[in-house]
Design a protein around this nucleic acid. Structure first.
Lengths: 342, 342
DNA sequence: CTGAAAGCGCTAACAC
DNA sequence: GTGTTAGCGCTTTCAG
C-alpha cells in the first residue's frame, strides 16, 4: 500500500507552510492566486486527502452518524435506512452501521463503539427499545449514553420516555385496518402477532381489541396468536388457526412478513385469498405491493420515518429545540388481500 | 450534552500519569494492582471511553471497513451485507456504509470520504464495476484508490482485472438454469434481462445463448428483452412478451425481481405458472422462497459471498497473499415456478 | 512499576 | 498573504 501524504508533504513540495495548505483546502482565508494554484495542482497530482481523524480530533466532529438496526435483511428497516441516508446526505453525514440482530448484548457493544468513535449522533431502532416492559438496566445504559451523544429512537422508547423519539402511530394504524375489516362486513376477526413481549405486538393487540369492542364484536382469545415477526411465524400461526373448527373470516397481522406467511399457508390449504379469508398486514414493505394477491396493509411510511429521524437528529446535533416525540401518521393501503365478506 | 472525559482527567483523579492510565486501558504493561484497581474504578464510574480518533491517528488503524452498495433496498445486497457484518465482527471491524444508488458520481464522492476517514479497507459492490464496457476514468480512479486502501470488488471488476475480487460464477449459474429448462422439455425459451450495458445482463445472456445452441435450440431474438433489474421492469417485459403471437414456453430472468414481475404479469393475464409457462430467476432472495408460486432460481449464496469478501479483505489488510479472483459456485434451486413442458 | 515528553496530522489563533 | 506554534487525546519510547 502506498503511504498517504500529509499536509506537511504538500507544504514542503510547494515551499509554503502547512497553514497555507490548510487555507486552500478549507478556503478559510485568502491565499495568493499563484500559490493557491500551485498547491491545488500538488493536491490533485498526489491525490492528497486530508486525514479526517486529525481534523475530527480538533473539531470534535466526525461527520458520522451511528445507526443500530435489529435486522438488515428486513425490508422495513432498509427502507428506513434509505430514507435516512438520503436526508443525511444533505449535511454530508455518513453512516456507521451496525446490525444488532435484536441481541441486547450486541447493542451494548455497539453503543460502546459509537462512543469510542465519537459519532456526532445516533439512531437506534428495534431491540431493547421495543420491549413491552423495558429492562431497567438496558434503559439506563441507553439514557446515559444519550447524555453524551445526541440520540433519537425510532419506533420505540425507554422508561419514562426520557429520550427523543420519532415513531409511527401503530395504535391508530391498527385501528384503521381493523375498522376496514369491520366495514367489509367481517365480524369474526383474528389477530396474528409477533413476540408478545415486544411493544409492537402489544400495542397493536390493544388497538385491535379496542376497535372490536367498540364495534360490539366479540374478541375470541383462540383467534389471537402470537409467535415472532417472521414469514415462517406467519405460516405456523395460520396453520394453527386453520385447525380450529370455528375459524375467523379475517385476520389482522402484526406485520407484512406474518401476513405473507399466513397467506401462503392459507393458499397451501386450498383457500382463496381474499374470497375465503381477508388478511391484512402492516408496514407496506415493497413486496406487499408485488405479492399475489397484493396485500392490504398499513403503511408506516418507512422512508419518511427515516428522513424525519435524521431531521430531528440534525436539530438535536445543532442544539436546537426539538419535540420529544414526533409521530408519523400511518396510512391504510387497501389492496387485494381483503374484501367484503360474502 | 455532557463533555466526554479524557485520559488526562482520569489520570488527574487517580494521581497518576496518563501513561499509566493508558497502560491499564490497553494492558500493555504491568501496573501495580492497587493503582490498577483505582483507575479501573474511575473509568467505570465516569464511563470513560478512550477517543478512537486520537488512537487511530497514532496507530493508523480505524477499525472501520468502508462499504459501497448500489441499493440498500435490494435483498440480495442486504444479504451480502449481513454475511459480511457477521464476518467482520470476528475482527471487531465496523462498517461505514454508503448507498450509491448506482450513481457513479456518488461513488466517487464516497470513495473520497472513505479515504479521508482512513478506513482500513473497503468493499465495493455494483455500479461502475458492473459495466459491460468499463469506463476508463472511473476504473482508473478506483485502481488508484485501491493502491492506498485494501479493496475488494464483489461481483464485478475493472479494466484488466487489476483488483482483487470475489464473485459468483454467473455464467455457469445461468447455464445450469437454462439446462434445467431444457431438461424439462422446453424448446422455446426466452430471456428477460436487466440493463444491457451491465455485465450481469450480458454475461447471463451469453451463457443463455451458448446453452441453447449447444442443445441445438433456436435463439429467438424477439424473445430476448432487456430493460432494468426491477420488479416493474419484469412486468413490462412480460407484458411485451405476451403480446407476441408466438410465445416461449419458458423464460430465464436476469434476477428474482424481474422473475417476480414477470410472474405477476403473467398471472394477471390469466396464465398459470408453471403450467402455462416456466419462469426462473437468479439470486435466491428470501422472497423467492415465499412467493406464490415459489420461484425456481439460482442461488448466489449471498451470505457466503459477503463473508468471503471480508475474509479476503482481512487477508489483504494483513498483507497476506490472496488470490486475485475468488469464485463462489452458484446453486440451482428448483422450486415451483418451473415444470416439465406438457 | 511509573512519569516525561515526543509526535500522529490537522486547524486556528497570533504574529508579521 | 503567509508563517509559527499550540494544542486535540492518545500511545510509546526512554529514563528513572
Amino acid at each position: 500500500m502506498m503511504k498517504q501524504m500529509t499536509i506537511y508533504d504538500i507544504a514542503k513540495l510547494a515551499n509554503v507552510s502547512v497553514a497555507t495548505v490548510s487555507r486552500v483546502i478549507n478556503s478559510t482565508a485568502p491565499v495568493k492566486d499563484s500559490t493557491r494554484k500551485k498547491i491545488e495542482a500538488l493536491i490533485q497530482q498526489y491525490q492528497f486527502q486530508p486525514n479526517a481523524m486529525a481534523r475530527s480530533l480538533l473539531k470534535k466532529e466526525t461527520g458520522i452518524i451511528g445507526i443500530i438496526v435489529p435486522d438488515l435483511t428486513n425490508p422495513f428497516y432498509t427502507e428506513v435506512l434509505a430514507g435516512a441516508e438520503q436526508e443525511a446526505l444533505t449535511t454530508g453525514h455518513t453512516f456507521l452501521l451496525t446490525n444488532s440482530v435484536g441481541d441486547y448484548q450486541k447493542e451494548s457493544q455497539y453503543l460502546s463503539i459509537m462512543r469510542e468513535k465519537r459519532v456526532d449522533g445516533m439512531i437506534f431502532l428495534g431491540g431493547r427499545i421495543n420491549l413491552k416492559i423495558g429492562d431497567e438496566e438496558l434503559d439506563q445504559e441507553l439514557i446515559q449514553h444519550a447524555s453524551t451523544i445526541p440520540t433519537v429512537l425510532v419506533n420505540g422508547t425507554v422508561k419514562g420516555n426520557a429520550l427523543t423519539r420519532v415513531a409511527t402511530d401503530e395504535y391508530t394504524g391498527t385501528c384503521m385496518a381493523v375498522q376496514h375489516l369491520i366495514e367489509c362486513g367481517h365480524k369474526q376477526i383474528g389477530f396474528l402477532g409477533g413476540e408478545m413481549h415486544m411493544s409492537t405486538t402489544s400495542t397493536k393487540l390493544r388497538a385491535f381489541k379496542k376497535t372490536m369492542r367498540e364495534a360490539g364484536l366479540e374478541v375470541r382469545e383462540e383467534w389471537i396468536l402470537t409467535d415472532s415477526f417472521s414469514i415462517y411465524s406467519g405460516r405456523k400461526q395460520m396453520e394453527k388457526l386453520l385447525q380450529l373448527a370455528d375459524k375467523p373470516t379475517a385476520v389482522m397481522c402484526v406485520n407484512d412478513f406474518v401476513a405473507i406467511g399466513a397467506i401462503k399457508t392459507a393458499v397451501d390449504h386450498e383457500l382463496t385469498i381474499p374470497d375465503d379469508m381477508s388478511i391484512i398486514g402492516f408496514d407496506d414493505i415493497p413486496l406487499s405491493h408485488h405479492f399475489i394477491p397484493e396485500i392490504t396493509t398499513v403503511s408506516q411510511e418507512a422512508n419518511e420515518l427515516g428522513r424525519t429521524a435524521i431531521q430531528v437528529l440534525q436539530k438535536l446535533m445543532n442544539q436546537e429545540k426539538v419535540k420529544k416525540h414526533t409521530v408519523i401518521e400511518p396510512k391504510l393501503i387497501v389492496r387485494k388481500s381483503s374484501a367484503r365478506l360474502n
